[in-house]
């Protein structure tokens, strides 16, 4: 039963990536104002009206891996083949292979996002559990209100406020870049310190605006679980309170939050476009934004694809761990189905 669950999740992940790739192909090729007409108009601007269609097509093929005069299915096959070889085309703006640009950027986005994710959920779950245990107390009520308020702040607003006050006005934090240019790249302490220093504000903006809703979700789940019969039976069986808190309340209250986690993964990675632009943090989102601004379609689409794949992988990993944690997963009785 569990095996079936894993196979199904894997198939789902692979199929999603495949579907997204197909979609990007379609968008690049079929939508009006796509790269072909864009490149042509660029050439027209450069060379006047004497544009050689062959030249345009050759350029398009260089950048996007698709020859515009081939039949559609050949284009599709060519596109897929080059993707499978890890070739995302060439950036028109940077004139570098897209794969190369994004390969250097991706680890940084993953770095920021995974830390944000862990902190958001760690903080949210802890706080929510505490709130549930002292339900109705002054702490509970005020924390609920604060959580709602923080959740009403868009993360980019928080980002602007942070970069404005702590970055520009007080100069306590850097306002751009991944690491200080003075440290040597590698696994040394100075490098790590600098990396965390530069990532601190982006992470803070996501965590501060994100943990509240998770805390509220955890609070609700915990209160529900605390009312379950098995908690009462466990107490009568004489289990230690911390065992009940962790193995009983914690575990059963956290499981339904996996849904929130999946959504958060997509939300955070997607948000990297805005966030990395505000902090001038060269991750995938930053390059996607550059690509958009410069109408650099290969870069834009490549970044979109990589972000999507990152999200699919993230959700896949979450799915697999969920399958490990909830024995009911796959038998149709799992909590995750309830979202």
């Amino acid at each position: 039963m569990i095996n079936k669950y894993y196979i199904e999740r894997t198939a789902q992940a692979v199929f999603t990536v495949f579907a997204v790739v197909t979609m990007t192909f379609g968008m690049i090729r079929l939508m009006p104002g796509g790269p072909v007409s864009y490149i042509r108009s660029q050439l027209v601007q450069q060379q006047g009206n004497q544009v050689d269609m062959e030249q345009v097509n050759a350029l398009v093929e260089v950048y996007t891996n698709v020859a515009p005069d081939d039949p559609l299915y050949v284009q599709y096959l060519e596109y897929m083949t080059s993707l499978l070889q890890g070739d995302l085309g060439v950036s028109m703006f940077y004139n570098d292979p897209v794969t190369m640009i994004l390969a250097s950027a991706a680890p940084w986005t993953v770095f920021v996002m995974s830390i944000s994710l862990v902190l958001t959920f760690g903080l949210g779950i802890t706080l929510g559990a505490v709130m549930a245990y002292i339900e109705g107390s002054r702490f509970d009520v005020s924390t609920t209100l604060v959580s709602i308020f923080l959740n009403s702040i868009p993360y980019y607003v928080m980002a602007i406020v942070l970069v404005y006050i702590l970055g520009y006005q007080f100069n306590w934090f850097p306002t751009g870049g991944r690491v200080s240019s003075e440290v040597a790249t590698g696994m040394n302490l100075a490098f790590l310190q600098s990396a965390f220093y530069h990532a601190a504000l982006p992470i803070a903006s996501l965590v501060i605006t994100g943990f509240g809703i998770q805390a509220l979700a955890m609070r609700g789940n915990s209160i529900r679980v605390l009312g379950e019969d098995y908690i009462r039976v466990a107490r009568l069986r004489g289990l230690a309170p911390h065992d009940i808190a962790l193995r009983y309340v914690g575990r059963n209250a956290i499981l339904p939050m996996y849904t929130g986690m999946m959504i958060a993964i997509g939300f955070m990675f997607g948000g990297s476009v805005i966030l990395e632009e505000i902090f001038a943090y060269p991750g995938i989102g930053y390059y996607m934004f550059r690509g958009i601004m410069a109408r650099d379609y290969p870069l834009m689409m490549g970044a979109f694809l990589i972000i999507t794949i990152a999200v699919v992988v993230g959700i896949y990993v979450a799915d697999l761990t969920y399958g490990k944690l909830d024995p009911r997963a796959g038998s149709g009785g799992g909590n995750r189905e309830a979202y």
Partner: peptide, 20 residues
């Protein structure tokens, strides 16, 4: 509803024995 749905029956027995 008297069992913790996320742990095995064995764990239920063992934790009870251990707690006492």
């Amino acid at each position: 509803s008297s069992f913790n749905p996320t742990i095995t029956i064995r764990a239920h027995f063992e934790e009870t024995i251990e707690a006492h």
